[in-house]
Design a protein around this nucleic acid. Structure first.
Lengths: 243, 243
DNA sequence: CGACAATTTGATCTGTCTCAACTATGGTGG
DNA sequence: CCACCATAGTTGAGACAGATCAAATTGTCG
């Protein structure tokens, strides 16, 4: 898929875009950058003048707490715009990192801001995107605050599955997550050891199966229930909430 | 302080506003509503056509997980606009509740949207406000995922203190938080019993003292260190980061 | 004063962490 | 093509932070 089409589609999972808005987005200048696995894209404290779009691979945001404890804040898939906040906030308050080899597109803030100012449709799409990111963050907060290890991991899998599906990156119930168990732990507030045991439990229960980074959901309804998952918070427009 | 001035000041803690923008905000129509302690203001699933502003008292957002486990997602003080997201998302994905007797102002979405569309300054202020809310959410995520009980509570106190201070609601190192220990637990992912013991520990260490809802910070620097707190994520404009 | 809510205390239990070893797995260079 | 090394996954044993349960104490407000 051409680069601009990717994030236009991503916005369309939330909001309808007319041809005028699409044209405006398509006209945005974009330069490219390839990033190695586990390399930081932006660092906390940095001042940034371009917004980035994930074109291929997987990206996460994270923060460090004292002692080198790491917390992953969000995952981002192709089409995602993981740093919309840099448009309005003067410095990064977290890091952005490649979880796999990644290709990103960079759009100068000035151009993006111009498009946002000129087109109400673009503006609303970007704002909505930002708000849904926050909604996902809130759901993660519930996960970490009030759910068991099994629920946390199951919930994360449900979420990733639906988000990937909305972008057409799943086949049947299969999808790819290039994450180590240690990274899964940093996202769910668990140790890698316990992630390991919990994944085994999920497999033993017949809910998912994995080999390497390829996962598949064997029993969506059961998984959903165990995870205490319901998809409303993703605010997906309508596409494919069946599975 | 007059009602509009309250949230204008609140926006000004993040962003400078010119007289044109202030005038536009001042012109917004507002109706009022008084809410009893522990009453819901908006409920999950509801469709909302007005944005609300806290005029007095304290408000929180929360979600329920299965089994009646509750997670508080954010706290809001006078001047805050706790549901900016309802402007763009069609339904609430969480609840909004009064933690104390509360007076709120309600601004019709249409009027607010008009002001946002017309004035770039207003737009940027509101977007920035939304982004900082998300930044706070991310910090809470780090708290729940990677910090001990003591750190979580200490961190929450640091944050509330600075946010209240920015709005002029502190006297010296004293401030008021109308929260039960059980609510503190729901915000920090702990049980009320453990919150109790942790607060005692903080008092014993000479970091804070409390009677009822009145708290004071006895040793800011120590508290900050124990909490692993640094205020950058609040993106406060400059005012009073001394304490 | 009575009653209900919130705080405090004690005892016990458990989910998850930590530490440490062992086993794939895959990539690299000789 | 194999020996090697690093990285990721797996397993076991023990420790501990924080949960749970239950009761006692202290507000607080009509």
């Amino acid at each position: 898929m051409p680069n601009h089409a990717l994030f236009i589609r991503h916005l369309q999972t939330l909001v309808m875009l007319g041809s005028e808005e699409s044209a405006a987005l398509n006209a945005l200048p974009m330069r490219f950058r390839d990033v190695r696995k586990h390399q930081d894209i932006f660092r906390e404290g940095e001042r940034v003048s371009e917004s980035c779009i994930v074109l291929s691979g997987m990206v996460c945001r994270y923060k460090m707490a004292g002692d080198g404890r790491r917390q992953i804040l969000s995952f981002h898939f192709p089409g995602d715009m993981p740093d919309l906040q840099s448009l309005n906030l003067s410095y990064m308050d977290h890091n952005l990192m490649a979880l796999s080899p990644v290709r990103i597109g960079l759009i100068p803030h000035d151009d993006l801001r111009a498009a946002i100012n000129r087109h109400e449709g673009v503006r609303n799409a970007v704002i909505t995107r930002t708000l849904v990111d926050a909604a996902i963050l809130r759901q993660w907060l519930v996960n970490l605050g009030r759910r068991t290890a099994l629920e946390r991991i199951a919930h994360l899998f449900c979420e990733c599955y639906l988000r990937l599906q909305a972008m057409g990156h799943t086949e049947r119930a299969n999808f790819r997550l290039p994450l180590t168990q240690s990274e899964l732990g940093d996202a769910t507030g668990l140790s890698s050891v316990h992630v390991n045991r919990t994944m085994q439990e999920l497999r033993r229960m017949g809910l998912i199966s994995s080999n390497g980074n390829e996962h598949s959901i064997l029993d969506w309804e059961q998984l959903r229930q165990k995870a205490d998952f319901s998809p409303e918070y993703l605010h997906l427009r309508d596409t494919a909430l069946d599975a």
